[in-house]
Simulated assay, not measured.
Amino acid sequence: MATTKFKGTDVELLGNEVKVGDKAPEVTVVNSAGLADVVVGGAQGVKQLIIVVPSLDTGVCATETRNFNARAAKLEGVKTTVVSMDLPFASGRFCAAEGIDKLTVASDFRNKDFAKAYGVLLGGSVLAGVTCRAIFVVDANGIVIYKEIVPEITEEPNYDAAIAAAN
């Protein structure tokens, strides 16, 4: 059983654990801009940087998304997507207010298909039902080449390692 921590307490991660070397599950999430379907994972002919956050309505998630928005502008040929459980309307407002325009911000609110397929759904805790904080880099052929489950949900990920894997 995979776990992460929330304020020092172990939290179980539910779903199918995806590991480096695995085929990245292809999952449809909802874009915050226009409620269009967005496919993440699978073989898309380009690298994918998939950033998973619990909610854009928290300081750490907002900071992380702003940082990746700035860094994504420098990545060539990489599809960058932030996935959370936030409603698309709320994440759309966040993007508009924060100038998030170099990456796609999407929601897994409908069926939690992404969270279950990637093993990032938080189980029994006060945050049950949202995602943990994680990063996946998927190569053009749909293989996971980098994964980070941030050990403590309240902390930021290793930006440099994720960007290096995506380059």
Rank of each mutant, 00 (worst) to 15 (best):
residue 104 T to Q: 04
residue 150 V to F: 04
residue 92 G to E: 13
residue 132 C to F: 02
residue 55 S to T: 15
residue 6 F to S: 03
residue 118 Y to P: 03
residue 9 T to H: 14
residue 36 A to F: 07
residue 16 N to W: 02
residue 22 D to F: 10
residue 75 L to M: 09
residue 54 P to F: 10
residue 3 T to C: 09
residue 109 F to L: 10
residue 152 E to G: 06
residue 32 S to H: 14
residue 57 D to Y: 07
residue 154 T to M: 13
residue 76 E to P: 01
residue 9 T to F: 06
residue 155 E to W: 09
residue 48 Q to R: 11
residue 137 V to P: 09
residue 54 P to L: 10
residue 5 K to R: 15
residue 53 V to A: 12
residue 15 G to T: 05
residue 19 K to W: 00
residue 70 A to I: 04
residue 5 K to N: 13
residue 105 V to A: 07
residue 3 T to I: 14
residue 75 L to T: 04
residue 1 M to A: 14
residue 25 P to W: 06
residue 52 V to C: 08
residue 46 V to R: 13
residue 77 G to Y: 04
residue 163 I to Q: 10
residue 69 N to M: 10
residue 103 L to W: 01
residue 99 G to V: 06
residue 149 I to L: 14
residue 41 G to K: 04
residue 21 G to C: 07
residue 153 I to G: 00
residue 33 A to K: 12
residue 165 A to H: 06
residue 54 P to A: 08
residue 20 V to P: 10
residue 3 T to W: 12
residue 160 D to S: 13
residue 167 N to M: 12
residue 125 S to W: 11
residue 129 G to K: 08
residue 10 D to P: 12
residue 143 I to S: 11
residue 62 A to T: 14
residue 142 G to S: 11
residue 129 G to A: 12
residue 23 K to R: 13
residue 8 G to N: 04
residue 71 R to G: 07
residue 106 A to V: 00
residue 126 V to L: 06
residue 57 D to I: 07
residue 163 I to L: 15
residue 66 R to N: 08
residue 70 A to H: 12
residue 64 E to D: 15
residue 63 T to K: 15
residue 130 V to Q: 08
residue 149 I to W: 05
residue 12 E to G: 03
residue 60 V to Q: 10
residue 121 L to F: 10
residue 89 F to C: 03
residue 7 K to T: 05
residue 148 E to L: 09
residue 15 G to V: 02
residue 125 S to V: 07
residue 127 L to A: 15
residue 83 V to C: 07
residue 4 T to Q: 08
residue 110 R to W: 01
residue 42 G to N: 08
residue 167 N to A: 09
residue 145 I to G: 09
residue 159 Y to M: 05
residue 83 V to A: 02
residue 59 G to S: 12
residue 119 G to K: 03
residue 91 S to P: 01
residue 64 E to L: 13
residue 106 A to P: 00
